[in-house]
Nucleic acid binder design. Structure first.
Lengths: 227, 227
DNA sequence: TCCAAACGAAGCGAATTTATCCGTTTGGAG
DNA sequence: CTCCAAACGGATAAATTCGCTTCGTTTGGA
């Protein structure tokens, strides 16, 4: 292209930095994270954010789509494992560690785009396969459903301790906190294996996770390319 | 008492309502819960809040002290159990369910009063006894420390799903969400029993939980009675 | 050398937040 | 029944924070 990209490379780098910063700030500040904080953390001006996304919501929607891609990838990788249990265990660990509880706080605050809905469906299907395989192999306790596991992932993904240390900038303790959470994950995984007494209550219905994203379903299906 | 309490009963009721509302709103809105929201939820005017607490922080400090009392009570009740494991399990369940993750978000945002520090120490001691007893009985896996359990309680106490449903007023789904969390707790408890492979990494140090409350240690040791 | 594309940050109006002030209600003593 | 201090609730002041726009400056390839 002839005269079309004087500082294109910098723009690309900034876009990447923005997404990473948004994820981090969202995890730390929750749903009320401000665009100023995000831009500052990315080391760019606020205008650079609004040049790529028409609004704060659109940035968050794009971020959700990217995170859903990661979930899908993790599930696919899990399914490629020979050992059904190892595949599921790695999927759970991966989801907890990379999502960092970023998307939970967003639920109900942004509209669900068609793109997000499609990816959510796909992710859900893959995960059900993963769970079914572990059930069939007898590795996963038979009374634990995919919903139980989804909730567990979300529950452990959002770590109050790590978020607070992040907020206070205690970088010296963050490694220790991550190590501690790895142990919590290991405990939960051990609890998911076969050979335990029956779980209490009834299995949670899928509606619990599906309905929480319900919002005002506006259109918004724009891809976040440049203007 | 002669002429000293025209509407004393109502004041007492309001005080109770305020504390309950503050706990709920804190769990739902996080550390940036506003006094207006709290007063509205309690069904009282803002002035009634400031008549009993000189500031928002003082209300939160009082709330922390009360929650610590609950933790202490739960530990004492656990220690009275004949079965060491049952005692520990009930303690964990109770802490998760009544605290509702209210205090986590406060960590680092309010000053620690002497009263809070003393109760924290007491609670810590009791919990160590509880864990030591379960270890001695061989019911609790030997590589799980009191710190692991404290972190697990905090981790599961703060439930993103329940908080969001609360925020959206989906009272129809809240029961289902609580049932689902009970199952998560059961999974974690199963993972804490003896007979599992060794936990990864090294045991987390007590500093992780202690230092997070560090703040500007002002004085503030006033009891929240009337003016 | 040139200039469009991309940049950072000050600034704007709207919306919140903490805390105070003040007119009104209330319930028991006399 | 009368009275009045204690307790009430909500309007409001003052300061902050928010999402977003506007604008003057920098940059790098043709």
């Amino acid at each position: 292209m002839a005269r079309r990209a004087p500082r294109h490379a910098e723009a690309e780098r900034n876009d990447q930095a923005l997404l990473e910063a948004a994820k981090k700030v969202l995890a730390v500040d929750g749903a009320h994270a401000s665009v100023a904080t995000i831009a500052a953390r990315a080391g760019v001006g606020i205008a650079s954010l609004y040049r790529r996304y028409r609004s704060k919501d659109e940035l968050f929607q794009h971020l959700c789509a990217l995170s859903l891609d990661q979930w899908i990838q993790a599930a696919e990788r899990g399914l490629r494992h020979d050992d059904p249990w190892e595949g599921l265990a790695h999927y759970i660990s991966a989801c907890i560690e990379f999502s960092g509880g970023s998307l939970g706080p967003l639920a109900g605050t942004i509209a669900v785009t068609d793109e997000m809905a499609a990816k959510f469906t796909r992710s859900d299907e893959l995960m059900h396969d993963l769970v079914a395989r572990a059930h069939a192999a007898g590795a996963l306790r038979s009374d634990a459903t995919a919903m139980d596991i989804s909730l567990l992932i979300e529950q452990v993904g959002k770590s109050p301790l790590i978020e607070q240390l992040d907020r206070q900038g205690r970088t010296d303790l963050i490694d220790a906190a991550h190590n501690a959470r790895k142990r919590t994950i290991a405990i939960a995984l051990d609890g998911l294996r076969s050979g335990h007494p029956r779980l209490p209550g009834t299995a949670p219905t899928p509606a619990l996770l599906a309905e929480r994203w319900e919002h005002s379903p506006t259109d918004s299906t724009r891809s976040p390319g440049r203007s």
